[in-house]
């Protein structure tokens, strides 16, 4: 659930929040109805978090919220007070990290729109919880890709997670 240190809020259309995003603390006030995805994109200009459906189905907007992969299109920005968020922009301090490099090397992306969601899911979950190739499929089943047919993505994850072809 929401972080234990989320502060008490009286009914209001404007909600103060304090949230750590990619390691930096953001203190601001958000509209009560603003979606977290819109807050990240429009207020913080972190446009790598993409909005594909706004109903929690496609997974393009997935972020790391306190260590869990979460769909930012079906959360309100007001709910993240006291939390810590990582977006695709915060995935690697410099250049491409190993998972991103594996996507590039294995042609794991085409249009790239869904890609940040996949990266955020994969970088957040524990690979041991998703064994074998079947596990990789399961791990990414909450993220839809319309370009790749998942072949390149699965190859990329095998590389990043150091799994043989028929694991």
């Amino acid at each position: 659930m929401s972080a234990a240190n989320a502060r008490r809020v009286e009914p209001s259309v404007e909600v103060p929040i304090s949230v750590t995003v990619n390691g930096e603390t953001v203190e601001t006030t958000v509209a009560a109805r603003q979606l977290l995805a819109d807050f990240l994109r429009e207020e913080l200009r972190l446009t790598g978090t993409h909005v594909g459906c706004e109903q929690g189905i496609c997974g393009a907007c997935t972020i790391n919220l306190d260590g869990e992969p979460v769909r930012s299109c079906i959360m309100l920005a007001a709910q993240v007070d006291g939390s810590s968020i990582i977006t695709v922009e915060g995935l690697s301090a410099q250049g491409l990290g190993p998972l991103q490099q594996a996507f590039k090397d294995n042609h794991g992306l085409q249009c790239g729109f869904c890609t940040p969601g996949f990266l955020m899911t994969l970088s957040t979950v524990d690979p041991d919880e998703y064994p074998g190739t079947a596990g990789i499929r399961e791990a990414i089943s909450g993220n839809l890709c319309r370009c790749t047919g998942y072949g390149g993505i699965i190859r990329a994850v095998r590389t990043a997670w150091d799994r043989p072809d028929h694991g």
Binding site: R41, L46, T47, G48, T49, H50, V51, T87, V88, E89, L91, S92, G95, L96, Q100, F103, K104, L109, G112, F113, T115, P116, L119
Partner: peptide, 14 residues
Amino acid sequence: DDALLTGAGTYVGD
């Protein structure tokens, strides 16, 4: 790909 993998892509909505 480097841009698309780091969130630096620029789609119209961005």
